[in-house]
Design a protein around this nucleic acid. Structure first.
Lengths: 363, 363
DNA sequence: TTGACTTGTGTCATCGATGACATCGAGTGG
DNA sequence: CCACTCGATGTCATCGATGACACAAGTCAA
């Protein structure tokens, strides 16, 4: 029952070599030493003296045989799998996922760690099962990722393993997390508009009660305050965070008297709707109206005309930083990856300048 | 040096239990039987008789202690890690990635397998190293995924392990692969236009020499032939596969005399450009012009107005099928996951109807 | 009554790598 | 000349789970 991994017939076709993978003993035998010695040499164990000649011979033998250590055996012995779990709620629904994963994976690889991917689909029952699978695999830690910034509860099972929240935060300040700095992001966007001379700046926000909503609004306010502009509540309009919501909100804002000369949109999708509204109203972007988005979904921001200036979520960075935090928890030998770990880390969101922002008309 | 995974101080804060995870021996001791017996019971080994009373007691003990088998140890012993590698070239650059991964992951989970993720970034040197990491982890097989349908060479290292190509194909017909059926996809799109009564159908294609280009064009031709429409070479225009390319191509096609009443676009991004061109020319979609895209990038197709009818790439399905194929190679016990494996599998691309297709004007 | 069987369970070796400790020969100082 | 150190390498147990096989106690037929 499945002892042999590959049916012989197939194996031949595809070109597998059927022999066992060679282990440390094979190298030892071939080099005429003991397995221990080989281990010492290959791992460059300190405090172990080895005859340079022997070392050379063993190294050469290992190379020739194409020896690669068996991670399972090593993991068993060392009680460390060099593997971390990546659990996400909705890996698929957002294009952001890729960059978070990439950041995590590349940072992990730097430390010889591999990522075990899992998607719960938001189903708690499934989540329990999947986390169990992860624990069985003896993961050294877990990245618990959300696909948009929010507050989550850490599942009970994960308490037995070092865990870092990714694009999510816990109410328990003891749980390390990495999230984007929404406030600063909002500030960045609005400052850019202010910098171009805008004073009447609308904010098209969304209706969901999530950190991004509150944070970006707060950032909007701070930037206005900083510029000495009094906030006009009529300039803040909320709608669903999709193209159609942006469209509706923009129509409202742009048809009011004393219309804003610039719009800061909760996200790029809403900005997409703003473009349509502007076109229908005969307003040219950026000559008549400056627009700035959030998220930097390149499909949109690059696809729109003119290109949408926006604030990028630091997805790659978040993934990478989360791994660093996890490493700090698990106490790896090499911890030279930037700033030390903080419990709840917030990453800045960089401005991505394209072509949708200019000075306001009729200055 | 890192023997203990968690610094004690931190551990306390976060709530890790510092004790070793309990192993089979602990259960055995607690239940007053041998480890072997526990193993037999938990694995429901056939041909092994166990006293129902003992079974009950062991099961209960295991549950109480929260026992979970150590995957590393089991993998070592059974020479099977129940893990498969997912190697992709560009995990991040496309939103499709998520769904492929999800499909693969969910199908894998059904069989108790976990996915080890890796991204090569297209760097062969890095790829070699990463694949080595995978092999060290004793993966049972590898999914080698490309982020757009193309022909690839299987890296030398992977020949020692069962491999299935995902959204990629090899010249060697012996290498199993799963790709979308581009030709059928093109046919599907154009048939939809024909069905609505269109006869003058333009094809905005791209300039890259990849299977999608040739396949979709072939599908376009077949559908026309099927409808008894003579192909007019002036109706096929190629440009870069982005919004701007679609924009340019559309301007050309729509400003020519006897303009097409419908446009089939190589992808949704090009269709996005077509929308802009149509708007500039004062053509209303779908009243004056029907448009159909390809890829179903929801960000676009759902964000455009009116919604873009398009042909979806079966990403989720591809991921899932690839796992099934891999399972067939590795010979798992349960192989009841749909149709049996074929060497080079092509999956149909379903039509996604939104609102950009209608009957041609002035019938 | 005894050998053949059944039933239920335990013993032991094994998977591959590693660390603590043992060993062994060659120097070295007293 | 001998106890001792040091350099170089080997022995053995171990990590946790599992399979082949052994074994003890009971059942049954001859």
């Amino acid at each position: 029952m499945g002892r042999t991994l590959i049916p012989h017939s197939l194996a031949k076709t595809i070109g597998h070599d059927m022999g066992r993978r060679i282990g440390i003993k094979d190298v030892a035998a071939a080099a005429g030493v003991s397995a221990t010695t080989v281990s010492h040499i290959l791992n460059e164990v300190e405090g172990k003296r080895v005859n340079p000649e022997t070392r050379q011979r063993v190294l050469e033998t290992a190379r020739q045989l194409g020896y690669a250590p068996n991670g399972l055996a090593r993991g068993l012995r060392l009680r460390r799998s060099n593997t971390i779990g990546f659990v996400s709620d909705q890996i698929a629904t957002t294009p952001h996922a890729g960059r978070i994963i990439l950041g995590a994976q590349e940072e992990a690889a730097k430390h010889g760690l591999l990522l075990l991917m899992l998607n719960t689909g938001g189903d708690p029952e499934l989540e329990r099962k999947e986390i169990d699978l992860l624990l069985q695999r003896q993961v050294d830690g877990v990245l618990y990722a959300s696909m948009y910034h929010r507050v989550v509860e850490v599942p009970e099972r994960l308490r037995s393993v070092p865990t870092v929240l990714l694009d999510a935060r816990s109410d328990d300040p003891g749980v390390p997390s990495v999230v984007p700095d929404e406030v600063l992001g909002g500030e960045t966007a609005v400052r850019e508009l202010v910098r171009h001379g805008h004073r009447r700046i609308g904010f098209i926000t969304n209706v969901d009660d999530i950190p991004a909503t509150h944070g970006r609004l707060e950032g909007y306010r701070r930037a206005l305050a900083e510029a000495g502009v009094a906030e006009d509540p009529r300039l803040v309009v909320a709608d669903v965070s999709e193209a159609v919501g942006g469209y509706r909100a923009a129509l409202r804002l742009l048809q009011a008297e004393e219309r804003p000369t610039a719009l800061f949109c909760f996200n790029d999708r809403m900005a997409m709707g703003v473009y349509r509204a502007a076109a229908e109203l005969g307003l040219s972007i950026p000559a008549d109206l400056s627009v700035i988005g959030f998220d930097d979904q390149e499909l949109i921001s690059d696809g729109l005309f003119p290109g949408l200036t926006t604030v990028a979520l630091p997805h790659y960075e978040m993934g990478a930083r989360a791994v660093v935090q996890l490493l700090a928890l698990t106490g790896t030998p090499d911890q030279e990856s930037g700033p030390g770990a903080q419990a709840q880390e917030m990453l800045p969101c960089p401005l991505v300048v394209r072509a949708s922002v200019a000075s306001p008309p009729r200055l």
